[in-house]
Amino acid sequence: MSLLISQLINGLQSGSIYALIALGYSMVYGIIMLLNFAHGDIIMVGAYVAWLAIIHFALSPFVAIALAILTCTVLGVTIEKVAYAPLRSSPRRSLLITAIGISFLLENLAQIIFGAGSQRVPKLISGPSLNIANQHISFTAIVTIIVSVISMVILTFLVQNTKMGKAMRAVSEDMGTAQLMGINVNRTVSFTFALGSALAGIGSILYCCAYPQASPTMGSMLGLKAFVAAVLGGIGSLPGAMLGGFCIGLAEAIVSAVGLSVWKDGVVFAILIVVLIFKPTGILGKPVSEKV
């Protein structure tokens, strides 16, 4: 029984990282219908920034964390401005291909600059671990789960209760009409990217706490799984992305716990296939009726 609880906590820990990243996918998809495949690589950049800050500039972990999140945010907005904004009126396929291109660009840049091997990210946070009912729960796991829940609460507040959030929801519903109503679409889209990338930045820090290595391709699998989480929850839906993230994390933990760890990735992508076949809108997604 206590083993089960530990496994659930393992699942929640990786699930909350997936959820944070899935939120970025879902928000961007909701607003400009783009699957931003460069999103996973932003996490990789965040991890390298944290590593650089601590190892090469000898900054304190706290500054490194702030710097990593800031860099991710700026990078996300820059990518949107440079690569996606000029293509906003082109077919969606061009946007998608651009996103994949950006993803490769970031991965290969990292490989050229930092080398193909991985780098160790030193400890960013430390604290006492908990022992509940003879079961060890690490400080990292507690922090990861708490930080992501807080981030999600803040995000929900931003989207539901602020003017910018209202603008985001309006643009995602109908970009043209929103513009006619006096909403600055460019600013709103940039804000969405900033928000999504900041979450990715937080995700990258939490990821580095659990798996303290930065490597050029670390973002691709992480991004893909978060994408599956977003689809599972219903892409475009924020509560859906959170739910999807936790589900994927738990599914992985359970699969590993029963001794099928080698099939972990397979199970995640099988979930994607099953969702796409039987409920393409995901758990919480709204069905979109095609306008004729």
Partner: peptide, 20 residues
């Protein structure tokens, strides 16, 4: 005896089983 696939970074589930 726990296995993992090439490229995995998360081993906590297997290690939790081992720890038990």
């Amino acid at each position: 005896e726990e296995g993992y696939a090439s490229g995995d970074v998360d081993f906590k589930s297997q290690l939790t089983t081992i720890a038990s």
